[in-house]
Design a protein around this nucleic acid. Structure first.
Lengths: 248, 248
DNA sequence: CGACAACATGCAAGAACGTGCACAAACGAG
DNA sequence: CTCGTTTGTGCACGTTCTTGCATGTTGTCG
């Protein structure tokens, strides 16, 4: 049997059953476990499966989805959230877009202030469900599962009617030279609108976002008003733009 | 059985019943208590459950009102959900409005069907985040914290543009004489629009909803196409309206 | 307080794994 | 045809992962 035939057969078995066991495959094809492991490694590399101890599964279950990202670096995000919510004043209207850091910020918003929160991330609306003093406006439209946010024309249309005191901009690249950037065209469009409709631009970012550049430009670095980041990560370079730095 | 399969099975049991017992799980999977405890620790670390003495519960505590209702009668709601999702066909467009039963239904939707789900409940959009074959449309607008849904003029305006094969109507009163009713005027308005825009009207209700009447009328009982309820609760009276009954 | 169940922790056995190497078959160039 | 190269495979080795058990600790209930 040719190697590629075997790989194809494994893929079919994965599609049929959702999982395969390395032992079974070795016995079934009459090859060693090592060969099967090599096959699974190759299939995983091509994104056709996800290796687990004992075999492989279809790559369907939530890898890299919001839940995982949320628990990632949870302590840092909580500290970023506390520092960011300190910038909020009673009575303000906030745009908050999607992202796990922004979700942490939403949860940390002071419950005793009257705030209006406008968001295109359903998870953020849900997180604010037990804050009776907050007015929450959801921007609807087509929901992008991987981003956890509503994107597209409908969402943008709704945003153009709402002006805010502050926009808490979610995960993206921040660079002194190339400014603030987003990974995705659809994501970028709604973020640009939110920037245009807000007085202050606030970014809370983990260190890995600093100095990185994504394809779609949102704004110059000078447009940023407040930057909340971990201390030490070469943040001094941002002072030249009159950005208020909040190291944690 | 692969470790990850076991973790997944535990998560499903948690979703269905709202709780799991370490002993039962060990017996059921044929592994030691220690292994189950390790699994529960891992699930708790990922935020999928909350460990308690003897087992684990759904992570209810911080989200307050909505979450309490969610874990309440979780067992019955999971059975209602399974019976309701059996009515869904590949390629259909569904309206799903807010409510803890509807959230359970959304989670139980078959992942292998291409569905378009339109909802005014952010929690339902979030729950469907890991279903890549589903198209999700969020109806935005002013978010009502106590209902967990977007209500009001903006939401209604968006709904008037979307027609669906089926509307899965959430918690309200159902009575043979006085029809389907809602507790709240704002809630009632959006529900009426969703009813008007849908071919089939489906209601999945716990027994306490049957025979109760709320102030705001949504539709006559005869408008209901499918009624999914617990068995025995005097459901025969609904047969006169040509409603398809699905006792569980 | 005492009995007992559930728990955390450390440890050891076995399974699964990655890596490096050797061998054989297939292949192309001379 | 012969030689060197490439590719696929199996084996040996050390490593990592999972699991169950033994230990001592903590929590629950009468």
């Amino acid at each position: 049997m040719l190697t590629e035939e075997r790989l194809d057969a494994i893929r079919r078995m994965l599609d049929d059953h959702g999982k395969v066991l390395a032992n079974d495959l070795a016995a079934q094809f009459g090859v060693s476990d090592d060969t099967i492991r090599r096959d699974l490694r190759e299939l995983a590399r091509l994104g056709h499966c996800r290796r687990v101890y004992g075999g492989a599964l279809l790559p369907a279950p939530d890898i890299g989805t919001l839940a995982v990202r949320t628990s990632d670096q949870a302590d840092i995000k909580a500290r970023l959230a506390r520092a960011t919510t300190a910038l909020v004043r009673d009575g303000q209207t906030l745009y908050i877009d999607a992202g796990s850091t922004n979700l942490a910020i939403a949860k940390a918003l002071p419950k005793d202030m009257r705030l209006t929160v406008v968001t295109n991330a359903p998870a953020i609306a849900t997180a604010l469900s037990d804050n009776p003093k907050h007015t929450i406006i959801v921007l609807g439209g087509l929901y992008d599962q991987s981003k956890g946010a509503c994107l597209g024309a409908q969402t943008i249309r709704e945003a153009t009617n709402i002006f805010a005191d502050m926009f808490i901009l979610g995960a993206c690249g921040v660079d002194t030279e190339l400014g603030v950037t987003a990974l995705d065209a659809g994501e970028a469009e709604i973020k640009r609108v939110m920037i245009a409709q807000s007085s202050l631009l606030v970014i809370a970012a983990t260190t890995d976002k600093l100095g990185t550049v994504a394809p779609f430009k949102l704004a110059d670095a000078a447009r940023i008003d407040h930057l909340v980041v971990e201390d030490g990560a070469g943040i001094e370079a941002y002072r030249q733009f009159d950005i208020e730095l909040h190291p944690i």
